[in-house]
Design a protein around this nucleic acid. Structure first.
Length: 601
DNA sequence: CCCAAACCGA
């Protein structure tokens, strides 16, 4: 005789996957027998136990259908659907089992209700199962749930949001006037995720017009839209809104504010918020570190990383990517290696973001072989991995290796993006591969269906210009579908310098000054052209003009790390204690190089 | 039912 004791004695927390099917089935049979006999469930049967039987959802449904109390039946199914869709229980395709149960419910004559549907939809959203979700939607439309229950509506919007369909989410939103804060927030979120921050902010304002007040979640999402727009004025406005409307300043809001201020270029406000946060978590530190790195303030980013360690906050992937990025841009190979060792100690393999950041770091720090070995050891490589190593080889003058790696991409099923082609074209440019470069440039549009950007034209002008094909470079500029920018003109002016075209140079300088009047690059290049043509008077005149205009100097700057100390050298700077000796040596090297050049000619 | 942050560039 089966008693409830039998059930209570079995392990209460055996989840599916942990137990063999046979035992699962045996338990269901026991349950089946019990239900058939009593038309009731054993007392105190925990839901977990039912969930653990979820390998046989059809059978489970069938069993439950024999219960006398049909309300209880539905209630149990809902509990199971709910736990199948919950976060704590969603490895290896568990969420989709919620859909299976939903189907079994219909097959067994249950009527899924306003508790079932949102959770099934949530499960679909988790697995990005749009096809299944749409079928559930059909049910929700047929039963009218979509119109009568705002939870159903919101989870449906959420499904479309994660599947990337703004218009469908918007349709659901528009369909009935029953909307709450979550509906608005989900729509705003959808816009941000799909790369329409402007629409997100407009929707937020529409929400305000509809007399709804944002909560912390809405605030966080709208702030992230401001970050993406880099619109400081707007960001401040949202900050004021948060303050005026009593939105709780929790750690999420704080983090979002730090992120927003940094992405909008207001470091001081970001630091102020950070300092005043009553509670901080690793994300707070990450926002600060990656935000500073994003602004190009790599040294500050690393200072914050040290501070973070001094208060014993464990770095996560996001932190390490920010740190590696800073190392890459400062050339800090030693710290980069330390991070690499840290990763090896704390995880199995360096893939994804971390692996890509490592490849980039080693490449930028001059260890191209290390970069390549990390690249090769990665189990999964994406377009970022490939681009990082291609750009790395290109920077190191190894055009052939760069192009060989590029040729591998199609076989691996990875489509190059715009940045990849920057790497490919610079590789060609440095190696003087004009014919190949032209071919790759054509391929951008005709093979890969991408649109060449101003940057790609810049590379091509550089490539043609260096090779002395100035007319062709000019022709290319003439055919550009967009306005040439400073890089394009700069590349052409650089070519004029290399090949000594004074008159054309003067022309190009004017064009360059038009698009970039505030920088000194055009003057510097042009005065070099004059000097090499022995037109000293023109050169001096230009230098004088430059001084009068008081323009922004592009600081020539390099960093070198020695025994863990970073030395920063600026053009003309004398900050180093032994700068006299350094300049003397530099002069010797320069004259040595000049001698070699003369010898070569 | 809705919460933030990261990797490739001339």
């Amino acid at each position: 005789m089966l008693t409830c004791k039998t059930y209570l004695n079995s392990r209460p927390f055996c989840f599916a996957g942990g137990i063999p099917i046979s035992e699962d089935l045996r338990k269901l049979r026991q349950l089946h027998a019990f239900v058939l006999k009593t038309r009731a469930l054993p007392l105190f049967l925990p839901t977990h136990q039912l969930v653990s039987s979820s390998h046989n959802l059809g059978y489970l449904c069938f069993v439950l259908n024999h219960l006398e109390n049909q309300d209880l039946c539905l209630h149990l199914c809902n509990a199971i659907v709910r736990s199948l869709s919950s976060n704590s229980f969603n490895d290896n395709g568990t969420p989709l089992r919620a859909v299976v149960l939903f189907r079994e419910m219909l097959r067994n004559g249950f009527c899924p209700d306003n508790y079932t549907v949102p959770y099934v939809l949530k499960a679909c959203a988790q697995s990005q199962a749009l096809r299944e979700g749409v079928q559930v939607q059909a049910y929700a439309v047929k039963t009218g749930l979509v119109y009568s229950n705002v939870y159903v509506k919101n989870t449906l919007m959420r499904l479309y949001a994660v599947c990337g369909s703004v218009s469908s989410a918007r349709n659901v939103f528009d369909e009935s006037s029953q909307r709450d804060l979550v509906s608005w927030t989900t729509l705003i979120q959808c816009y941000v995720k799909m790369g329409f921050p402007r629409e997100a902010v407009l929707t937020f304002f529409a929400m305000c017009d509809a007399k709804l007040k944002a909560d912390e979640m809405t605030a966080v999402i709208v702030l992230s839209a401001c970050s993406k727009l880099g619109d400081l004025k707007l960001g401040r406005k949202i900050h004021d809104y948060i303050f005026d409307n009593g939105v709780t300043f929790d750690v999420f809001v704080g983090n979002a504010l730090v992120d927003m201020y940094l992405k909008c270029g207001d470091d001081d406000s970001a630091r102020k918020i950070f300092d005043e946060m009553p509670v901080r978590n690793v994300v707070s530190w990450n926002s600060l570190i990656s935000g500073l790195a994003h602004q190009g303030e790599f040294k500050d980013a690393l200072d914050m990383f040290r501070k973070m360690q001094s208060v014993s906050v464990e770095p996560d992937d996001f932190t390490l990517v920010g740190v590696l990025n800073s190392c890459a841009n400062l050339g800090l190979l030693e710290l980069g290696k330390w991070v690499h060792a840290y990763i090896d100690r704390n995880r199995v393999e360096a893939d994804g973001f971390i692996g890509n950041a490592l490849v980039d770091m080693y490449a930028k720090c001059g260890s191209i072989d290390q970069a390549f070995s990390v690249f090769q050891s990665m189990k999964r490589r994406d377009v970022y991995s490939y681009t990082a190593i291609i750009v790395g080889f290109a920077m190191h003058g190894e055009a052939k290796r760069a192009l060989d790696i590029f040729a591998e991409m199609p076989q691996m099923g990875i489509k190059p993006d715009e940045v990849t082609f920057i790497g490919v074209l610079t590789a060609c440019s440095h190696a003087g591969l004009v014919v190949e470069g032209k071919k790759y440039f054509e391929d951008i549009s005709y093979v890969y269906n991408l649109r060449p950007q101003t940057e790609h034209y810049g590379c091509m002008v550089d490539l043609l210009g260096r090779a002395g094909q100035i007319e062709e470079a000019q022709e290319l500029i003439g055919n550009m579908p967009m306005e040439p920018d400073a890089y394009v003109w700069g590349a052409l002016l650089g070519a004029c310098r290399i090949h000594g075209h004074v008159e054309l140079g003067e022309d190009v300088m004017k064009k360059l000054l038009k698009v970039e009047p505030e920088r000194d690059g055009a003057y510097v290049l042009m005065s070099n052209i004059y000097s090499s043509a022995n037109k000293w008077r023109d050169a001096v005149k230009l230098r004088k003009e430059m001084k009068e205009k008081n323009m922004k100097k592009t600081p020539g700057c390099s960093l070198i790390e020695l025994d863990g100390i970073v030395y920063e050298f600026r053009k003309g700077g004398k900050s180093h204690p032994r700068s006299n000796e350094i300049y003397k040596l530099l002069e010797q090297i320069t004259s040595h190089i000049k001698n070699c050049q003369n010898f070569a000619h």
